[in-house]
Simulated assay, not measured.
Amino acid sequence: MTTVQSLKKWLRIGLFTLAGLQTFVSLWQYVFSRSFYDNFPTVKLDPPYNQHLVSDVGGLGLALCATLYIAAVMLDNKVALTALVGYLVYVSTHFLFHVTHFDNFSLLEALGVGTGLGIEVVLALLLLYVVRLIQRAETAAGAVGSATAGR
């Protein structure tokens, strides 16, 4: 297995992982918004329930899921880059909000939320790095191929 094939395998696994996690939460938010508000750990510590807001966030999350799944299936660098940048913007702002609003959280709740959301940010950044490695390897392979074709 070549380096590019190996990197693409890891990229696909990572994209499907992000999409799967986001699908679980987003479907819960969209289809069972009241249950999400009442039962998802630490959400009850946020402002009062608003079904419209929770279901809209779930719908937006499902849109992110669609782009991640498409990127995982296609394994096109530009599609993966687009999906990951969009996902990173969402998870980074979500992470930033929560780590600056721990007023009513216990230490264990704050650590759990901060760690869980932080892992999403780190995984997205790692996958962006994998896309960059794939781009470099493909460019290098193309340069070698074109140099040997000219001989």
Rank of each mutant, 00 (worst) to 15 (best):
D38S: 11
T23M: 15
F40Q: 09
S33E: 08
V54D: 04
Q22C: 04
T23Q: 13
T17F: 13
S55Q: 14
V25L: 08
Q51R: 14
T23S: 15
Q51E: 14
Q22F: 10
F40C: 08
D46C: 07
P48V: 12
L53C: 00
V25E: 05
W10K: 12
S35P: 00
V57D: 12
T42R: 02
P47H: 05
F40R: 06
Q22E: 05
L15A: 06
Y30W: 14
R34H: 08
Y30Q: 12
Y49H: 02
L53T: 13
T17N: 07
Q51C: 06
Y37R: 05
A19Q: 04
Y49L: 02
V31K: 08
Y49Q: 02
A19D: 04
P48E: 11
F40M: 10
W10I: 08
D56F: 04
S55W: 10
L15D: 06
P47Y: 01
L18S: 04
D56K: 05
P47W: 05
Y49D: 05
W28F: 12
L27E: 08
P48A: 15
Y30P: 03
I13P: 03
R34N: 09
V43G: 05
A19I: 04
G58E: 06
T23E: 14
V25G: 07
I13T: 12
Y37Q: 01
Q22H: 06
V25K: 02
V25N: 01
V25A: 13
F16S: 07
N39K: 15
W28R: 03
Y49N: 03
N39H: 15
A19G: 14
L15E: 02
D38V: 10
Y30T: 14
G14W: 08
N50K: 04
Q22V: 02
N39T: 15
L53A: 14
Y49W: 06
A19H: 06
L53E: 12
Q22W: 07
A19S: 14
S35Y: 07
R12H: 00
L15P: 09
R34G: 02
F32I: 01
R34S: 10
N39W: 13
P41Y: 00
L11P: 00
V25S: 08
F16T: 02
L27W: 10
F16M: 03
V31W: 12
G14V: 11
L45F: 06
L45Y: 03
S35C: 00
R34E: 11
D38K: 13
G59T: 12
G59P: 00
V43T: 09
F16L: 07
R12S: 11
L15Y: 01
V43R: 03
P48W: 08
